[in-house]
Design a protein around this nucleic acid. Sequence first.
DNA 1: TATTGTTATACTCTATAACTATA
DNA 2: TATAGTTATAGAGTATAACAATA
Lengths: 162, 162
Amino acid sequence: MVPAMSEVAPPENAGSIPDLVELVHHVMKGALRHVQPTLNSEEISMGQFWALHTVSSLDSASLGTVARTLNLSPPTVCANIDALEESGLVRRHRSEKDRRSIEISLTPRGRRVEARVWREVSAVISGAARGVPGSDLATSIRTFRTIADRLDQGPVPRRAGA
Amino acid sequence: MVPAMSEVAPPENAGSIPDLVELVHHVMKGALRHVQPTLNSEEISMGQFWALHTVSSLDSASLGTVARTLNLSPPTVCANIDALEESGLVRRHRSEKDRRSIEISLTPRGRRVEARVWREVSAVISGAARGVPGSDLATSIRTFRTIADRLDQGPVPRRAGA
DNA sequence: TATTGTTATACTCTATAACTATA
DNA sequence: TATAGTTATAGAGTATAACAATA
């Protein structure tokens, strides 16, 4: 027996996905443009900030962990950490348990910079989302969490109508 | 009289915005990783694809229009168009009305490549969004359209709790 | 003078390959 | 041998400044 099409690929989804892709691309570009002055005044690049933010979230992490979290190569993260260390925002110290591994932690100044920039990023998006009902934001977050998790799980199943 | 806090800055929004920012960043990185093999086999870069897609959407556009649409500098778009022209995917021709301006249009092959890659991008996201109710996708699109439009309108108003 | 596109140039971000130290 | 991090190097992607042609 052939299943009804609506059980396999809900037709109402397929058509709207391209709009979502364009909007997300547009929002990323726009948000970056708004945040750039803050990054400039803190003398930090966007890539450096994501590394800083990741270390902050994980509260001390190895370089490899940061690379895996951000889906970047170790040399890329290494260069970012070099710059952050030179600016006095993070410290490197070898792990006691495994002397190959190096642990990265934030300096007090690193913590302050991370908090300031992250607050600014949130303020920009929050300001742009003024008036959007909390329930709509919650739905968007749920939707994006689903998509993010599935993209992390390897190849996504394809559907004819997609 | 001081307004109640919930009328000024709904507290349920402020806290969830950082999650949304992280998820969008993660989805962008993940989607790029999934689409990269298609871009490689079409021998086209992501930047070139966005230029191609923009020309396709606008159905012939000037270089400046593409640059403004993508929020990129004219030299950046010029380089992308150079590459696309060399690959035989677009054509340049001077405008009759204003001979400073050059119009860009897709070749038949450009149309086919654009359609293939865009279908693949949509398929990746669509596959990752399988099972998400169409109404949730519609809500996400509405939310992102609001945010994108506001980011385009210049500086966003800041709120204390953001 | 102002605008459209281009060229010249430089800087950032990123990855792969080769290397070092440790396991 | 395998893994964590680093160095060397090269290729995209991007922007600003200077230029050409046209308005």
